[in-house]
């Protein structure tokens, strides 16, 4: 039997192909397989050691504190968004109101503008005669 088959048996890749006694007899004679056997067995111990490590008893508190912080952060963010929406609505209302006044101030027509335009585009003489013949002037 070749070493490769013993190596497969050492790594648990084959079951029942090689008996324990045959394997142990081979390990006595083959240093290479013996080293692999030692290494594989030690790997099992290293894994068992790591596996048996206990998580810190404070991990629960740490996680919940972190979760609480995140939840608060998310809640704070949502509150911020809600406040920003309200502020935006109020800003739009106020801006609309004052904007309206401001625009209205620009376009405020006291009648003079219309008279000037009429005067420019229409028959000036008829307007002027109208003014001259107005009752106001007659008084």
């Amino acid at each position: 039997m070749e070493c490769k088959q013993y190596e497969q048996a050492i790594a648990g890749l084959t079951e029942g192909v090689i008996s324990k006694e045959t394997l142990l007899a081979h390990l006595q004679a083959c240093s290479s397989c013996r080293m692999l056997y030692n290494a594989w067995a030690f790997a099992g111990e290293v894994i068992a050691d790591e596996k048996s490590a206990q998580v810190s008893p404070f991990i629960h508190t740490r996680i919940m504190a972190n979760v609480g912080k995140r939840a608060q952060g998310a809640h704070g963010w949502l509150q911020g968004v809600a406040l920003a929406r309200v502020a935006l609505v109020w800003f739009a209302l106020v801006a609309g109101l004052f904007g309206g006044w401001w625009v209205d101030g620009f376009n405020h027509d006291d009648g003079k503008q219309a008279v000037y335009i009429d005067y420019f585009y229409t028959d000036r003489m008829s307007i002027e005669s109208g003014w001259l013949n107005n009752d106001f002037y007659e008084e």
């Binding site: 894994i47 790591e50 596996k51 490590a53 206990q54 998580v55 810190s56 991990i59 629960h60 740490r62 996680i63 972190n66 979760v67 995140r70």
Partner: peptide, 27 residues
Amino acid sequence: SQRVFQSCMGFLHDTDEAADLTQEVFV
């Protein structure tokens, strides 16, 4: 937490690193 920690140990082989990662996983 213990099961998650064990898996983290398998990848990181260090208790402190595994504990930190366990915390990150739960968050």
